[in-house]
Design a protein around this nucleic acid. Structure first.
Lengths: 186, 186
DNA sequence: TTGCTTACTTACTTACAAGTAAGTATCTTT
DNA sequence: AAAGATACTTACTTGTAAGTAAGTAAGCAA
């Protein structure tokens, strides 16, 4: 794997999370990395290829996180906290979540980028639903309604929590985070 | 007040809510309205003026909604439902909320647009906190924690609920909406 | 009736974003 | 040693976004 390619992916992701997909250009990437515009096109012929690859990368990292939690035998609280930790880090770094960033510009994305984003969102919701379901069955969590609705609600809180906290006050995310935890406690 | 100016504001808002601030141009507006590019610049010299004016307009409409609810003496449930109704309508129209749309591209906005967005968000959170507080004191609502944290959590659910529902399935927003209501019932 | 304001249009500039075609240096394989 | 393949650069094209300067037609006001 090429180091330059990885740097482009990393910086592209950072730009999406900080400024938004339509607010950055290949020039932003090439000048920051000290390469030429065409070098970015060499790895990602069109911007939609870069966008789609960044999501695929996120899917891979999500799957790695799940594998890691499985091998280390995290219980449902542990898994939820690991997931939350990811958002707490984003909050510290003034980044939002990729679902919220690309979701807000959804209609302006290419079909392949849209599909990849839907795939990733679907995976997260499914995983979150399953651990909420298992955790409640074990008596670890308490909540009203079905697991999928609760997963949608919690994920929404995290996604827009980052957006609102970046806009208003970083500490607002901590408040949301604590409320989410308290609400789930039996 | 000019009709053209109002049409530009309306269409500009729709474009922000459907595609995103950085994904539309003055050309999109002028061609749709059958006017020239420069006519849009006549009312809004720079794009940031348009962005800021759209938010100011939203603040006005929010204040009108509050006035209306006050004169009609809505109780706290009624006020909350009126607010939710706004989001349900956006969901039907495949629009997201202006807070989430501009919030996701926050770092790319001009200082005046940022300030206006912060003002609007602050007003909404303050209002939501106050009715959650009053409603709980009257025994209408039940929730854990302080009113402001609860307001942040509920607003986050609405904001990202629209984003996720547009991305995945429109009916997902209904699920989130019902959960929010159930969670507040005493 | 002259002049001022409003609401635009015409015609342009500047800049930048996206993308491409062709060339080149280096390493790698046959 | 010749022929790819890899990883770029040089130099360009095309399109579009943002913005502006100057002009104009219509209405209204003194």
């Amino acid at each position: 794997m090429s180091l330059t390619r990885e740097k482009i992916l990393e910086l592209g992701e950072e730009l999406i999370l900080k400024r938004g997909y339509n607010a950055f250009s290949y020039q932003d990437i090439s000048s920051e990395l000290g390469i030429k515009n065409a070098a970015v096109h060499y790895y990602f012929p069109a911007k939609e290829n870069l966008g789609t690859s960044i999501i695929k990368n996120n899917i891979l990292r999500f799957e790695e996180m799940l594998d890691n939690m499985n091998t280390r035998e995290f219980d449902e609280w542990g898994q939820l906290e690991a997931f939350f930790k990811f958002y707490l880090k984003s909050n510290r770094e003034d980044k939002i979540c990729i679902l919220g960033s690309l979701g807000s510009e959804f209609q302006s994305l290419s079909e392949s980028t849209k599909r990849e984003l839907q795939k990733m969102t679907g995976m997260i919701i499914e995983w979150l639903s399953s651990i909420l379901d298992k955790g409640r069955n074990k008596g670890l969590f308490k909540y009203i309604g079905d697991a999928k609705s609760r997963a949608l609600l919690i994920l929404s809180c995290l996604v827009a929590g980052l957006q609102l906290a970046r806009l208003m006050d970083k500490s607002d995310f901590k408040a949301i985070h604590l409320q989410l935890l308290d609400d789930l406690k039996p």
